[in-house]
Write a protein that binds this DNA or RNA. Structure first.
Lengths: 216, 216
DNA sequence: AGGGACTGACTGAATGTTCAGTCTAGGAAC
DNA sequence: GTTCCTAGACTGAACATTCAGTCAGTCCCT
């Protein structure tokens, strides 16, 4: 038995280890600049083994992105399930996009920029994004319908609202990810919540559990 | 004398010709996959000449992006100058983002995806984006103030509105650029105008000059 | 003649992928 | 219990290609 950095474990663990390593490197160097050798080094193995698990570099990176998006989404929905009101869950959705560093996988927003630009040319990445966006909009839409059924929200077209809100969140994420001096996470959150409450016609007070920027 | 595709002309013309060629290639292959040889071929010259004009590949691509953004912005503002009402000018702003193909430089929205992802790592590109966004938000903000002075628009914080609208436009541009089946240009335009009119409190009727999708 | 525009032929480094094996665990045969 | 065998995990060393950037020199205009 040889002692590696990690006990190596099963093949599935190895795969996941490599996916995480790939995400680390993508966050640091960007999708296009990520080399197999980097991923291998980060995972404590050789480039050959990386190719052994994922046939090509493209496949590795595409799977890594899917992995990241899935765990980001799952983490969020798990957190949402613990919230009582539809308004609170909607606030959580907005917070997920505005405060990415609060998540287990930090720097998901930087990853999105690469996801979008790669989706333009790589069909594999495009389908990841497509499914991800669809799921995301469906989540918002279902949440609106639930809130309307409860009488929390006013009447708006749920599908239209979902498209608009997700676009707004994407746009704000860009500014946050790129560190725009005018649009930091706190302001993005506030502006977004203002839009949401205005559209759906409800008042929102911070649940005092999650830290929210004080009044300006 | 050998006949090239173009008579070559002055050095400045050559530069611009190369910048245009670079934009063509970036649109086709993406920023990261763009090779000097591609640009040279498209411009009808040799790779060596491209390096002769732009010292490095980075410089070529960065300048190309700046060139594209500038001409997109200038084209838009020129068109806006011909519009009487603030509401009409605001509609033009929204249209600029939603119908990029109508512009001289098509496919500017695909370029944005690369711009954002490259801005995350390349300081040169980052500053292009930074200045571009600032100018864009200032334009919106000034327009809102003008409309308020004319009594066309209701009272909203111009700066907040500019941040929100520009983010919304960015987000919708992503969907349009990537050909999302749920969000085409017409729907994006309609949703965006609904947001704008709702926030600023004015009615908007298509000026009948620019083609706008008829009612559903 | 001289200088700027321009080129073909190179080079050197980077890097994805292949390949020919090595090592280990575990099961079957005896 | 020992031996043999196999499949899968894993590796070091190469291979093949791609591509940015260099250079020595040519052509043309003034």
């Amino acid at each position: 038995m040889k002692e590696q950095a990690e006990p190596a474990g099963t093949a599935d663990q190895r795969r996941e280890q490599m996916l995480r390593a790939a995400l680390d490197v993508i966050a640091e160097r960007g999708y296009a600049e990520t080399r197999i050798a980097d991923v291998a080094e980060r995972a404590g193995t050789s480039p050959a083994l990386v190719i052994y698990y994922f046939k090509t570099k493209d496949q590795l990176l595409t799977e890594a992105i899917r992995y990241s998006e899935d765990s980001w989404y799952e983490g969020g929905t798990a957190r949402m399930a613990a919230i009582e009101t539809a308004a609170g869950r909607l606030a959580e959705i907005v917070a997920m996009s505005c405060f990415p560093e609060a998540d287990a996988d930090r720097s998901s927003s930087l990853l999105w920029l690469d996801l979008w630009s790669q989706a333009a040319r790589h069909p594999g990445v495009a389908s990841v994004r497509q499914k991800f966006d669809e799921r995301w909009r469906d989540t918002i839409s279902a949440l609106v319908l639930a809130g309307q059924a409860d009488g929390e929200f006013g009447p708006v077209d749920a599908a239209d609202f979902a498209v608009t809100l997700s676009a707004l969140l994407d746009g704000l994420s860009i500014q946050i990810a790129l560190g725009d001096p005018v649009v930091d996470a706190a302001r993005a959150f506030e502006l977004c919540m203002r839009f949401v409450t205005g559209q759906l016609g409800f008042e929102w007070e911070p649940p005092a559990r999650r830290q929210v920027p004080g009044p300006g």
